[in-house]
Simulated assay, not measured.
Amino acid sequence: MAVQSSIITRDLEQLAEPTGNIYESISVISKRAKQISTKMKEELNSKLAEFASTVDNLEEIFENREQIEISKFYERMPKPTMVATEEFLDDEIMFRKAEEDQEKS
């Protein structure tokens, strides 16, 4: 089984191209990564909330295994920054510059 590297060398010019500025591109990517991360955390918490109970019984062993499997699934998912970067490079993220909004006002 091949292990996918979590580090990928990126062409800075390619990243800067959509915005014209590498720092703006990184800002767009980081904001999208935060959205993805928040959504993933909400999904994980809602799935784990199904197991929340105050009763101690023998079923907890089975529930713990399910919780562990769910947690492992989310740990194996691509990191939000990787997903956001791919979306940005594939032109799947819509963004606008603050200067453009001010000019319209």
Rank of each mutant, 00 (worst) to 15 (best):
M1C: 08
A2G: 10
V3F: 11
V3Q: 10
Q4S: 14
Q4Y: 11
Q4D: 11
I7V: 15
I8F: 06
I8G: 06
T9E: 15
R10P: 00
D11P: 03
D11R: 00
E13C: 07
E13K: 08
L15A: 04
L15M: 06
A16G: 02
E17M: 07
G20T: 01
I22T: 06
I22Q: 04
I26V: 12
I26S: 10
V28D: 00
V28H: 00
S30Q: 08
K31M: 09
K31A: 13
R32F: 01
R32P: 03
A33C: 05
K34V: 09
I36H: 01
K41G: 07
E42N: 13
E42M: 08
L44Q: 05
N45G: 05
N45R: 11
S46C: 04
K47Q: 14
A49P: 00
E50C: 09
E50N: 14
F51H: 07
A52L: 08
V55W: 02
V55Q: 06
D56H: 07
N57D: 15
N57T: 03
L58F: 06
I61S: 14
I61G: 11
F62Q: 14
E63H: 10
E63D: 15
N64I: 10
N64V: 08
R65F: 14
E66Y: 07
Q67V: 09
Q67T: 06
Q67D: 00
I68Q: 12
I68A: 14
E69T: 13
E69V: 12
E69W: 06
S71E: 13
K72R: 11
K72W: 04
K72L: 08
F73N: 12
R76P: 05
R76N: 15
R76K: 11
P78A: 07
K79Q: 12
K79M: 09
P80A: 03
M82S: 15
V83E: 01
V83A: 01
A84R: 00
T85S: 03
T85W: 00
E86N: 13
E87V: 02
L89I: 06
D91K: 15
I93T: 02
I93M: 01
M94N: 10
M94K: 10
F95C: 07
R96E: 14
R96V: 15
R96T: 15
R96G: 14
R96N: 12
K97R: 11
E100F: 05
E100Q: 10
K104I: 10
K104V: 12
